[in-house]
């Protein structure tokens, strides 16, 4: 639902004097509403090489694969990771990210004879599990990490996992097709049935 649709929805809700006071002549200001802004991941990509993009895409898809529902690539997560690594990580974090990517770029072809993204899925998984094992003492896995903004010295594999999971469940595809998106519930029911396969509401993290 975009903002205009919401306002129409609100207009139906609000009766009489309400509609007049609330005022729907939005026109010019409407252009700057975040609700009608371009998706964040539609930003211009100029940070990674094509080879690096293939590696990041393969990693993201290994973390959250397409199953009977869309996966990381379907949701545009590789674009999210590239934009966030360029614009959001601080200098120290970006160095960790770049070093981790460079390590995969050189080490994997030397060991396996082909780039990471061309390995069979099982071998990609094994490489990432090995990276995760060697990162297991990181604060990233520590108590209450979810309450922190970001762990500044989180290893590369943890950075990619966090950006993938975050980018996926906050993407339009992830929020609407894997989670349940309901921006305008109109009521609150505190005893709503939950089936064994039902997903979380996408809005719960806002």
């Amino acid at each position: 639902m975009n903002r205009r649709e919401f306002m129409q929805c609100a207009a139906i809700l609000v009766s009489g004097v309400g509609t007049r006071q609330i005022g729907f002549a939005l026109s010019r200001e409407q252009e700057v509403y975040l609700a009608t802004a371009p998706d964040y991941i539609s930003g211009t990509l100029d940070y990674l090489t094509e080879a690096q993009r293939r590696i990041i895409a393969a990693m993201a898809e290994t973390i959250i694969p397409r199953t009977d529902t869309p996966g990381a690539i379907d949701a545009g997560v590789p674009r999210f990771i590239e934009l966030m690594a360029r614009d959001w990580l601080n200098d120290g974090e970006r160095r960790i990210f770049e070093a981790g990517l460079a390590d995969l770029q050189t080490r994997i072809p030397a060991e396996f004879g082909k780039p990471f993204d061309e390995l069979p899925p099982g071998e990609q998984l094994a490489v990432m599990e090995q990276l995760e094992d060697s990162a297991s003492d990181s604060e990233w896995y520590g108590f209450a990490n979810v309450q922190r903004q970001f762990i500044p010295d989180a290893p590369f594999i943890c950075q990619v996992k966090e950006l993938t999971i975050y980018g996926f469940f906050t993407s339009e595809v992830g929020a609407t097709q894997v989670l349940r998106h309901n921006p305008m519930p109109m009521r609150f029911d505190g005893d709503y049935p939950l089936g064994p396969d039902d997903s979380t509401w996408a809005e719960s993290g806002l």
Partner: peptide, 8 residues
């Protein structure tokens, strides 16, 4: 920012 979904 009202009603903007996370992806915006």
């Amino acid at each position: 920012g009202e009603h903007a979904p996370a992806w915006k």
